[in-house]
Design a protein around this nucleic acid. Structure first.
Lengths: 395, 395
DNA sequence: CTGTTAGCGCCTTCAC
DNA sequence: GTGAAGGCGCTAACAG
């Protein structure tokens, strides 16, 4: 392996000169620069970033922990995250925990051994807050609260629920039917507002719990508007057949329904079923998908859907991640060699420590949900205004 | 930051003793070991892997280059790859190239700067063979030929096509209709056998080109069996509407069709359309998805599909990756400190260099396609035997 | 502006 | 068995 040493010898200069040229830091005489550069080419020198990293105590790599990537939701988030991190000069280490005995500890270990500069935690954890707060390295949580001092980012599902309700209200809907998961644990969760420690399934993790928040907001808003609403329970969100049954029973049990909200796949099936039965979508029946993925385009019509602003979420997470890294960097540089400009880093001043939000255990950064405009709901000026107001985008 | 130094001092021993304990290499007196271990705990020492990596010239990280992860195909492959690499002690660096000006060079740069031990190349490249062969670092290609000495792994689409044809033949089909992409460039590709340099779209990259190989094999096999077959062209594989039109026209133009092969989504739509028109699936009409993803479960019936053996592919790629890393490792250790046991590494002997396959430019490792048994095709003993014979699994 | 020097934190031949 | 010394490849203070 050819190193700076060889380049220096070949160019007849000293190490630091080469270093300066490589990093284009200080000023080097043009002649020297040329000599060095040609020497580098001749030897086809390529700097070893490992050494550089060792010195700086930094790898510019962050681990993204997720249950799986084989699920549209996580795949989409992962994609957005990778892009957002890349823009900031950070590389993405894929850390999947499903099917892995102790993936979590493994990746946290890498963080501690300085193989990664930070961790973005987007998977269910079996550990308590103590575990996370005692790590004392950069961590950012997605859609979960890990402990004091650990920033968290997630979607504003209450706003999403309100948004859905408002769209229906403004379009003149009179009878809304909600499709959703088992209603059983609904009330427990709704009342305690505590985190779900039981659910381990990847698809549940993000459909069941947030759905509670959105459903409450949705129903409350509908109530205020005096709009009738009913709920149809899908026993097992993982079973395709259940979705179809649900789609069928909506139309059978409530022939006068004129608006439906459902998870993406169920919504798509509702569209098919409705068209099969001669409903006219959207004029006689509106259908709205909540948390829609691309399957909303499978139905024949583009289904209007309320979805998470993945890019916005990713941007915010990436931002927080950089903040965290810089904060810890300067902390560590107390007894080290880093040439920081003293004081704290911009954006992470003081009170960041005390997330003294009145309600602890909540997400710190709430990102608004977006609306993807489709052909299965009605549109009028009031609705367009609503959307412009709450700043969702058409994707 | 607390280092081995501090541990050594605290334990009253010397550096190397600590090192030996940490790596559990040589033999250390039990007393020493205990002293060191407790010292480590008290100081909550955690080894800095950066330093270790610098010394060993290895990061145990491999970059997986893919166009995107927001596509079921790549997400699935990525997931399998990550698992396979993890099993072998390798971490996965996610390297997405879509929407990135020069992601490819970026990641290759990281490989050269020793930030990654290897690269798995699963995206379209704009560079020629010279670019890849002159990198001289571990690379493994997925479904593409990058140059001599660079191992490649991919699915055996010819076998897949034969498999489909055989299934139909054995089930007594008399008229098969194929749905697929534009037939235009079909023949060009088929004749030249050269790589497609034009397609840049992620979904095209793996649907259009391999589909040629499978379609040829399929049609040839059907011909040999004397089974009539027709082709229906889907103009734009990215447009949902096109799929539906195609599904409709199959049944209109060929009322006597008794078997259909189509890309997953199209197949799902065919099932829906067929049921709507009163066909009995599978007894009067069989439907088979080629390269099926989970959308084949969206149709109401589980669609039988022929799909890539992602886990098998991933395992093979991971294996080749490890081989490559070890090979280059020992090459580099000629003038270094590595304590290798001399000679070459098992499994990577000699002739690996010369992929002197009679036909150059081909995939080195072909992995058989699998069959996912669904409810849209007929089954009999002969078919089961066929499947057991060619070793596809039921997933 | 250039060269010399002392590490980043860990690993491993060598003498003891 | 244990301790001391040199080095992985690069960096950033220093002097010159």
């Amino acid at each position: 392996m050819v190193g700076m040493r060889d380049v220096a010898r070949k160019a007849g200069v000293s190490l630091s000169t080469v270093s300066l040229v490589v990093n284009s830091n200080g000023y080097v005489s043009d002649e020297m620069r040329v000599r060095v550069e040609s020497a580098m080419k001749e030897l086809s020198y390529v700097p070893n970033e490992l050494a550089r990293n060792l010195y700086h105590g930094r790898t510019n790599t962050v681990g993204v922990i997720m249950p799986t990537v084989q699920h549209p939701f996580f795949a989409t988030l992962l994609g957005s995250l990778q892009k957002a991190l890349y823009k900031r000069g950070l590389n993405t280490m894929l850390c999947t925990t499903a099917d892995m005995e102790s993936g979590e500890e493994h990746y946290v270990g890498m963080l501690q051994r300085h193989m990664m500069d930070a961790i973005i935690m987007g998977a269910h954890t079996s550990h308590g807050q103590n575990y996370w707060t005692s790590i004392r390295r950069p961590i950012v949580a997605f859609d979960r609260y890990l402990g004091d001092g650990i920033p968290s980012v997630g979607s504003d599902h209450e706003q999403g629920g309100e948004l859905a309700a408002m769209m229906f209200a403004l379009s003149g809907a009179r009878h809304v039917v909600l499709l959703g998961g088992p209603r059983s644990r609904f009330h427990d969760l709704a009342q305690t507002h505590g985190g779900p420690n039981a659910s381990d399934d990847a698809s549940h993790e993000l459909t069941s719990f947030p759905s509670v928040r959105y459903q409450i907001a949705l129903e409350d808003t509908l109530d205020s508007a005096g709009i009738r609403h009913d709920y149809i329970e899908i026993d097992d969100l993982a079973k395709m057949q259940e979705f179809e049954n649900a789609a069928r029973s909506v139309l059978e049990r409530f022939p006068d329904v004129d608006a439906i909200v459902a998870p993406d796949l169920a919504a798509a099936l509702c569209v098919q079923e409705a068209m099969r039965r001669g409903f006219v979508v959207p004029s006689s029946l509106q259908i709205l998908a909540y948390d829609g993925t691309f399957v909303t385009d499978t139905a024949g019509l583009r289904v209007t859907s309320i979805l998470q602003g993945f890019d916005a979420i990713a941007e915010r997470i990436a931002m927080r991640t950089v903040e965290q890294i810089e904060r810890y960097q300067s902390e560590a540089s107390s007894n080290a060699h880093t040439s920081s400009s003293g004081s704290t880093i911009a954006g992470s001043d003081g009170d960041n420590e005390t997330i003294s939000d009145p309600e602890a255990g909540r997400i710190g950064d709430l990102i608004p949900m977006k609306v993807k405009i489709g052909a299965t709901t009605l549109w009028n000026d009031a609705i367009h205004e609503l959307l412009d107001g709450s700043r969702p985008q058409t994707d």
